[in-house]
Amino acid sequence: MSTATEAADPIALDLRGDSPRWWVTWRRHARNKPLGAIGAAFIFVLIVAAIFGQDINIGGSTIIPGFSPHPASETNIINKLAAPTFPEHIAGTDSLGRDLFSRIIYGARPAIVIGIVATGLGILGGMVIGMISAYAGGVTDLLLQRISDAFQALPPLLLMMTLVTVLTPSMTTVILVIVIFLIPGTQRVVRGTVFSTLENTYIEAARTIGAGPGRIITRHILPNIMAPILVIASVTIGGTILAEAALSFLGLGANSAENPTWGFILFEATQRGNLDRWPWLALTPGAAITLIVLAFNLLGDALRDVLDPRLRGTGAGA
């Protein structure tokens, strides 16, 4: 990349063929939506940390050693509650002498996995139920909508806490519980979108030439609702990560000895008295949660503006 061509039209650059197409597209979007690009870059860093932060083991031997300076659970009592120092402990150590920066790196994995898997499954579930509800109509629609009203009348945290307690906390439970929390809201948006899509004359035309429900859904409805779905998914991930962090903070999250969650690290910090004397205990995990949610929200906002201007500022998923 020479700096002289930086300001030139990206399309012209592409025609000259000195950079790949995806890079050109990416750069054009990044220039129009700098905040979205910053969010995307930060998410990329976190995904790298989630994958390569800890050792990757296959069949008992380490294939790729992790870049995290220490294992998350490596204690060192002599060096407990040490203030941040460069380069040994850039985020300080906790009351057992564990390196906080390493714990944050290890915590990236549950945060990213839950954020992506739970949001994906929740949106998928919402799509299935929303489409069934809109397409079936009548009593099925009424019943599904009232059940979803009932779920939404419960404060999400209360619902999730009860569910986790009933099912005992684990990664799978937390994902399942967040999926249950996401479905009612998502299905409502999908149902609304499907309804307005069904009004179009091309659906009537498809029916007239004898297309069945399966064909209408896959060929005519799905392509039309994909943009709003993608936007909802991207603005929902931040909320999903927040929900898991809140559960972890209350001791009902996906925390484990190998992979401490950020919410739990923050909870641990509050269990230590005189927190104002070692503020890094709370600031490090709190900043990690805030930044990742911020990054997903910024990316979501940018995607929404690019893909679906109608949804701008509706606060969907906020």
């Binding site: 962090a245 809140a246 509050t270 927190l275 104002d276 709190g286 949610v293 929200n297």
Partner: peptide, 23 residues
């Protein structure tokens, strides 16, 4: 507003309890 949406309320509460109390 963007920050307000991203900061978890439990983090904010911990900050207020800890630091407002100390300062």
């Amino acid at each position: 507003a963007i920050l307000g949406l991203a900061v978890p309320n439990f983090f904010l509460a911990v900050l207020v309890v800890t630091f407002a109390a100390a300062w």
